[in-house]
């Protein structure tokens, strides 16, 4: 187990240092998220819907779509020069490759969130200080589920004829429970409801994470054998 985790961390560091040196996907995901926040604000009638009511849905819809940008890059970078074949030929277990990719994506998605959530508070005039703890818990749980499923489908989508077109189609139905749970829990928090009321949603997110991290890690080796 320790071997798998250390190998996974090595792969995650490789992906993150590629991303850190080019910053191509990160900037586009952050700018996409900021643009989304702005566009969504103008897509509603501010006299009918208050910014507080709008914010949770906007945040989590943008989170899934900007996540897709990063996820697509995850195996997209390996497609050039058949880099993935080199990775697969190395004495690393397939599970470690998957976990490494997923860890890199998790850090990527978390970094986008770390910019998008304060930007949401700024643009939508929200006071997030009081609910920061539970909101961070929601964000982490949502990101784990999104990344587990998204990393697997990213690995599959790059090998199809439709490539990047297929990833949203495969992944979005799986993001439905995440978006519903995260948006509803955030709405409760912003509405000043007690934290206990978001418990059911947090449990749902946690259960989703456990099932799909396990299922996707086990499924990944079947998508790369040759």
């Amino acid at each position: 187990m320790a071997d798998i985790l250390s190998a996974a961390w090595l792969i995650a560091r490789k992906d993150l240092s590629i991303e850190f040196r080019t910053r191509s996907a990160f900037f586009s995901a952050v700018i996409f998220a900021l643009l989304g926040l702005v566009i969504f604000y103008y897509a509603w009638d501010p006299t009918a819907v208050t910014a507080t009511d709008l914010a949770p849905g906007v945040l989590w819809v943008i989170f899934t779509f900007s996540g897709l940008l990063g996820l697509h890059r995850s195996f997209g970078v390996e497609a050039a020069d058949h880099a993935l074949d080199g990775l697969l030929a190395s004495p690393t277990s397939r599970e470690a490759i998957f976990l490494g990719k997923a860890i890199a994506n998790l850090i990527f998605v978390g970094a986008v969130q770390a910019i998008a959530i304060p930007a949401l508070a700024l643009f939508y005039n929200l006071r997030l200080g009081d609910v920061a703890g539970p909101l961070i818990a929601i964000a982490i749980l949502a990101a784990i589920g999104l990344v587990a499923v998204g990393t697997l489908f990213s690995a599959m989508a790059v090998n199809t004829r439709l490539a990047e077109l297929l990833l949203p189609m495969l992944a979005l139905p799986f993001f439905v429970p995440i978006v519903i749970a995260a948006a509803q829990a955030t709405a409760k928090l912003l509405g000043g409801r007690p934290v206990i009321e978001v418990g059911a949603w947090l449990k749902l997110l946690l259960a989703f994470d456990i099932v799909f991290v396990a299922a996707c890690t086990l499924a990944y080796p079947f998508t790369v054998e040759d």
Partner: peptide, 10 residues
């Protein structure tokens, strides 16, 4: 293989 993975996850 791919569709089997999606069939199970679905």
């Amino acid at each position: 293989r791919y569709s089997a993975v999606l069939g199970i996850l679905g």
